[in-house]
């Protein structure tokens, strides 16, 4: 569920892989096998080191993919994978005709996009503002405090959010009442229309500090001479931010965007699940909760698997599409 903060290392890695392709091509096809066994013997220690973990990877990450056959079956646990009836794309057809599933998709996309846009804007803003602080100690303290919520569990954060939004004595209602903006306390978590915003705000609260780390690091890599030259030319602080700092971190932003677009259907699970209640459920239920409800609570394994599979396939399509677009635009890309 977690979105990796610094996926850039992956890029580098894949670039390297491309380079290392060349020498291998020179080898003849026939000698491949021989080459393989020679290497196995030569590097048997490295082989022993990696085999247990490759087995682990296969069992826990690749084997479950075989479970996707359930999406094309009317899977009955008692009959197993081999004796369950095959139904082709019926599960998917059912999903896309199901009104509830379409609502769930709407919620998933809405929350995911809100989180994505809010997350990027706030983290970049925070990084830029932190970078402009002149007092190093003050900057350090602000940074340390801003990382804190990242280390709290969603269970804790959901508790904090629901007390802050409580009708009686919740700080948000107290502030709004004292400012005279509202007359009656609002039951924030009881109104479905507010739910997406609440999730977005909670997500920002939890991760803005953490997500700013990578941008701040990118900003420190910008050539300092540019700032000095701009200062001599009389550029104001805001001009320096818009003409030097932001363009300077563009490639990092693009790569992180591509990475995150691959997670477009990954709107989070814990926050929604923990803050969900019967009153806001129509706006809170996302794909993950749908899968949980159908799969575990109603034991409709096939439908839940189809929904889960749909999510992974769509993520892949989006990832490749975003990568392609970035490539066309001449931006940095993931692979």
């Amino acid at each position: 569920m977690g979105i990796p903060v610094s996926p850039l290392t992956v890029t580098e890695d894949l670039k390297k892989e491309k380079k290392s392709k060349q020498p291998k091509k020179r080898k003849k096809q026939g000698s491949r096998l021989k080459y393989f066994f020679t290497k196995c013997r030569e590097q048997k220690e490295l082989l022993w080191m990696s085999i247990p973990f490759l087995i682990w990877l296969f069992i826990f990450k690749y084997l479950p993919l075989g479970g996707w056959v359930m999406a094309f079956q009317d899977f009955k646990p008692a009959r197993g994978f081999f004796d369950s009836d095959w139904v082709g794309f019926d599960q998917f057809r059912f999903l896309f005709q199901d009104q509830r599933f379409l609502e769930v998709m709407r919620n998933t996309l809405a929350m995911s996009l809100i989180n994505l846009v809010l997350g990027f804007l706030t983290a970049i803003t925070l990084a830029v503002l932190l970078n402009e602080l002149r007092q190093i100690r003050f900057k350090r303290i602000v940074q340390t405090i801003s990382y804190m919520p990242h280390f709290l569990s969603w269970v804790v954060v959901a508790g904090l959010v629901s007390s802050a939004l409580a009708m009686e004595d919740g700080i948000i209602n107290v502030i709004l009442m004292n400012l005279g903006i509202i007359e009656q306390p609002i039951m924030f978590l009881g109104i479905g229309e507010y739910f997406w915003g609440i999730i977005g705000a909670s997500d920002v609260w939890k991760s803005v500090g953490w997500n700013s780390i990578i941008y701040l690091a990118a900003i420190t890599m910008i050539d300092q001479e540019q700032y000095e030259a701009a200062e001599i030319d009389g550029a104001s602080r805001l001009q320096r931010i818009f003409y030097i700092t932001l363009p300077g971190i563009r490639s990092v932003v693009v790569i992180l965007m591509i990475m995150n677009i691959g997670y477009i259907l990954e709107s989070g699970f814990e926050a929604q699940y923990l803050l969900m209640n019967p009153l806001n459920m129509d706006y809170a239920e996302n794909l993950d909760i749908f899968v949980l409800r159908y799969g575990i609570s109603m034991a409709n394994f096939s439908l839940a698997t189809a929904a889960g599979m749909f999510k992974t396939v769509v993520s892949f399509i989006f990832l490749f599409a975003a990568n392609k677009v970035a490539q066309k635009l001449g931006e940095a890309r993931l692979f």
Partner: peptide, 19 residues
């Protein structure tokens, strides 16, 4: 590559549960 692929390839809750 086999490790990095799993960052995006998630079998989903139910297949994992059954495993």
């Amino acid at each position: 590559i086999t490790f990095v692929m799993t960052m995006y390839m998630n079998a989903g809750l139910i297949p994992t549960y059954l495993l």
